[in-house]
């Protein structure tokens, strides 16, 4: 990873960026975020298949936003969330230096084998970056091939009652720690809906009503926006399969609007725009 360390040192030394966010190793089979402000810290930078964190999430933080320019190490999937931040006017392109890493795959959250999300990845090679590091990786899926998540089939095959029971059981473990929200690069509201408390909009108790309200509202707020980085599910201390909700809505967006989030910064997300040619068969 000499290339990465070299580039980082260059950016820091030249004062082109005030901060660089990358990865450092965390034990033999692990990696964790690293905030780099000097060349000595840059020595610790790594990139490998254990670099699961989507570091773009730190760009939403007020103290990071306040800096003049920030560099971030990002995989193609992470860059998709950056593209969404751009098209939603949450970051200024000039304020961020993207160090794009080519990536064949990362490991699954439990460290065994290939991560499920990599099997549907169309951006092993970063599609938007200021510099791309690493050898090119052959893309396995055509850009225009619709997404399909196999794990949804089991859920879709269930009856309504079975699905209700399934989610009741899964969401009962939610402790409302909001790790999903904090890790999500696209949950950037300055004041989250659960923090509106005069009156309380969403029940903050981790009872069935509160947990359903919270998790469904979050999923709906990500409809047509979620880029499948899988961070919410990975960071959930209660092991709730949150990506089932998000992927289900991704497929909806694909089917209804031929839309996949995070590829083209020029295009407008379906829920922030109006097009006459959209069929409106859902309005009855």
């Amino acid at each position: 990873m000499q290339e990465l360390v070299k580039k980082a040192k260059e950016l820091i030394e030249s004062k082109e960026v005030d901060l660089l966010i990358g990865y450092q190793s965390d034990g033999e089979k692990g990696a964790k975020p690293l905030f780099v402000k000097n060349t000595q810290q840059a020595e610790k930078l790594i990139f490998n298949q254990y670099c699961l964190n989507n570091l773009v999430t730190y760009l939403k933080r007020p103290d990071v936003k306040a800096l003049k320019k920030v560099a971030v190490v990002a995989k193609g999937c992470d860059i998709r969330s950056f593209v969404m931040l751009l098209s939603e006017n949450q970051v200024s392109r000039d304020a961020i230096f993207i160090i794009g890493m080519t990536c064949d795959h990362v490991v699954s959250p439990d460290g065994t084998g290939e991560n499920e999300k990599c099997t549907t990845c169309k951006v092993h090679n970063p599609h938007l970056a200021d510099v791309v590091l690493g050898a090119p990786v052959p893309e396995k899926i055509a850009k225009d091939k619709p997404v399909h998540y196999a794990q949804l089939e089991k859920l879709n095959a269930m009856s309504q009652e079975e699905r209700w029971a399934f989610w009741q059981e899964e969401l009962s473990r939610c402790i409302r720690c909001y790790a999903c929200r904090q890790a999500c690069p696209l949950c950037y509201c300055e004041r989250c809906i659960v923090d509106f408390n005069t009156p309380q909009w969403i029940d903050t108790r981790s009872n069935p009503r509160g947990n359903f309200a919270w998790n469904i509202v979050r999923a709906l707020h990500l409809a047509g926006r979620c880029i499948n980085c899988g961070e919410c599910e990975r960071v959930c201390p209660a092991n709730i399969p949150l990506m089932l909700l998000n992927q289900s809505l991704q497929e909806e967006a694909q089917e209804k609007f031929a839309w996949e989030a995070g590829y083209d910064p020029e295009s407008q997300p379906p829920l922030t725009t109006f097009r006459k040619e959209d069929d409106e068969d859902f309005i009855r």
């Binding site: 964790k32 975020p33 690293l34 905030f35 999430t57 730190y58 933080r61 402790i175 409302r176 720690c177 909001y178 790790a179 929200r181 904090q182 890790a183 408390n197 309380q200 903050t204 108790r205 960071v235 201390p237």
Partner: peptide
């Protein structure tokens, strides 16, 4: 690098803060 969730405090045996709603 802390992203300010409450996972650490909620699994902690001694963290005890609560809110009244």
């Amino acid at each position: 690098n802390c992203w300010s969730c409450a996972a650490c405090t909620y699994v902690c045996p001694t963290c005890h803060c609560f809110d009244i709603t």
